[in-house]
């Protein structure tokens, strides 16, 4: 079941990447990148159980922290930029 989870995680990450590439607005892209980052955390956690190395969980933990901070930071940037009068379509 762990291998099937890894495969479906990779499929989901591919779909999120597709949305990030063809999303019409910048917010679609940020949403897709957020989903991608969350799924990366899960992928690292599942892989560390598949290969039997519990040390990898630290990487997953750090990745979860970085993901949240980066999403909120990018969001702040584009929120201020769209208030200045630019469009969200890049």
């Amino acid at each position: 079941m762990l291998a099937a989870t890894v495969i479906s995680l990779l499929v989901v990450m591919g779909l999120a990447l597709a949305r990030a590439l063809l999303g019409p607005t910048i917010y679609d892209r940020i949403l897709a990148v957020n989903v991608f980052g969350t799924k990366t955390v899960l992928l690292i956690a599942v892989i560390c159980f598949t290969v039997g190395k519990p040390e990898f969980l630290d990487i997953a933990l750090v990745y979860a922290l970085i993901n949240f901070v980066s999403v909120v930071g990018v969001l702040r940037y584009f929120e201020y930029r769209s208030r200045m009068g630019d469009t969200a379509h890049d």
Partner: peptide, 10 residues
Amino acid sequence: ALAKAAQHSE
């Protein structure tokens, strides 16, 4: 945060 930012944009 994403919904709020999108609501403040066009």
